[in-house]
Each structure stands twice: as structure tokens, then as C-alpha cells.
């Protein structure tokens, strides 16, 4: 009952907390050409754990902004304009905060929960694994 597979269907969060689950979901998203959404989600978690005193943190914030938020990709297109502006202003003013990507991460997570996660649970990739 509490097998990894049972947990995968419980929630997106449970799926992403499992190594095999996260890997398989990424394979699925790559095929759907939206793996960036998952990479961004993990990048937000990694960023939140970074030490703000570390000089790397500003560079990582800039890299996340450039690669996912500003770019016309799957993440940039799904974020609300106000959310993108908020992050852009933070990066420009070098006002780095552990929670600066939280809202954006929530928006992408909701989008994955409503779309990709549901499709994944019905995909051949998932069913073959099961």
C-alpha cells in the first residue's frame, strides 16, 4: 500500500520526492518538451537552501532568471507577468532573498499538477513502469 508507486499517485509532491519517480517524470516531460518546468521547480528548491552570504547565490539567481523566467520557454510563458517583473526587479537591484522564486515555483507547480502530472499518470511511460 505504501509502495513508491502508490505514493506517486498521491500527489505531485510525493512523486518528486522519490528518486525514480522524479527521473521517470522528467523522461516524460522531455518527450513533451517541457522538462524545463521540472528543472525550474528543483532549481527553486535548491536556491532556497543556498546561503545568502555566499557570493554564488546572486549568480545562481541571475542564472535561474535568465534561463527560465526571462526566456520565452515553457516556464516564462506560464508565469504571470507580475511574477516575472517581481523577480526581474529583485535580480536587477541585487536584492536576493531565499523566497524570491516562491511565487513563481507555486505557479509552475500548479500548472504541472493540473496538466503534466495528470497526463503522466496515464502515459505509456508510467504504465510500462508500473
Amino acid at each position: 500500500p505504501d509502495s513508491p508507486l502508490a505514493r506517486w499517485t498521491k500527489s505531485l509532491h510525493s512523486l518528486l520526492g522519490d528518486q525514480d519517480g522524479a527521473r521517470l517524470f522528467r523522461v516524460f516531460l522531455e518527450r513533451e518538451r517541457c522538462a524545463d518546468a521540472l528543472d525550474f521547480w528543483f532549481a527553486c528548491n535548491g536556491f532556497r537552501q543556498m546561503d545568502l552570504k555566499d557570493g554564488k547565490t546572486l549568480r545562481v539567481a541571475k542564472a535561474i532568471y535568465k534561463r527560465y523566467v526571462e526566456a520565452d520557454g515553457v516556464v516564462g510563458r506560464r508565469l504571470k507577468p507580475a511574477t516575472k517583473t517581481f523577480i526581474r526587479d529583485n535580480v536587477k537591484r541585487q536584492q536576493i532573498d531565499s523566497a524570491m522564486f516562491d511565487q513563481a515555483q507555486t505557479e509552475i507547480q500548479t500548472s504541472m499538477e493540473e496538466n503534466a502530472y495528470q497526463t503522466f499518470l496515464q502515459s505509456d511511460i508510467y504504465l510500462e513502469y508500473v
Binding site: 528518486q19 528543483f42 535548491g46 549568480r59 545562481v60 542564472a63
Partner: peptide
Amino acid sequence: IDSEDDLLQECISSAMPKKK
């Protein structure tokens, strides 16, 4: 100095689940 891509990859990897 690490490249931007390396930093980003390191950040993503640090958040990936490690064990089953």
C-alpha cells in the same frame, strides 16, 4: 570560476531526491 550552466546544474542537483 564556475560557468553559469554549472552553477545552475549544481543548484538543481542539490535539490533532487537522493535515495529511494
